[in-house]
Computed example of a mutant assay.
Amino acid sequence: MRVVVLGGTGFIGRRIAEELLARGDDVLVVHTEREAFASVAAEVRAFGPEAVVDTDALSWVDVSAVLPHLPDAQLIALSSADVYRAFELFRAGTSGEPTPLFEESALREHRFPHHGEGIGLDDYDKLDVEPAYLERGGTILRLAAVYGEHDPQLREEFVLRRVRAERKQIPIGPANWLWTRCYVGEVAAAVLAALGNPRAPGEIFNIGEPRTHDLGTWVRQILAATGHEAELVEVPSEFVPADLALTRAHAQHLLFDSSKARELLGWRPAPVEFGIERSVSWHLENPPEHWDENFDEDDRALSVGHALH
Rank of each mutant, 00 (worst) to 15 (best):
V4G: 01
V5S: 04
L6P: 04
G8A: 03
T9C: 05
G10N: 07
I12S: 14
G13L: 08
E18S: 14
L20H: 08
L21D: 14
A22S: 15
R23Y: 05
D25S: 09
V30H: 04
H31P: 13
H31N: 15
E35N: 14
A36S: 15
A38T: 13
S39D: 15
V40H: 04
P49E: 03
D54K: 03
W60H: 15
V63R: 02
H69A: 08
D72V: 12
I76T: 10
D82T: 10
Y84C: 02
E88M: 01
G96K: 07
F102D: 12
E109A: 15
R111F: 07
F112N: 05
P113R: 09
G118M: 06
Y124I: 09
R136T: 09
G138M: 02
L141K: 10
R142P: 01
Q153L: 15
R155H: 01
R155Y: 01
E157Y: 09
L160K: 05
L160D: 00
V163A: 00
V163E: 00
R167Y: 07
P171A: 10
P171G: 11
P171K: 10
G185Q: 02
G185K: 09
A194W: 03
G202A: 08
E203N: 07
I204Q: 02
F205T: 03
P210D: 08
R211P: 06
G216C: 04
W218G: 12
R220G: 06
R220Y: 05
I222T: 00
L223P: 03
T226D: 00
T226V: 00
A230E: 00
E231H: 08
P236W: 02
P241N: 04
D243V: 12
T247K: 10
A249P: 11
K260N: 02
K260L: 04
L264Q: 08
G266R: 11
E273F: 08
F274V: 15
G275N: 01
G275S: 03
S281K: 02
H283A: 04
N286K: 13
P288M: 02
E289Y: 12
W291G: 15
N294I: 11
D296C: 12
G305C: 07
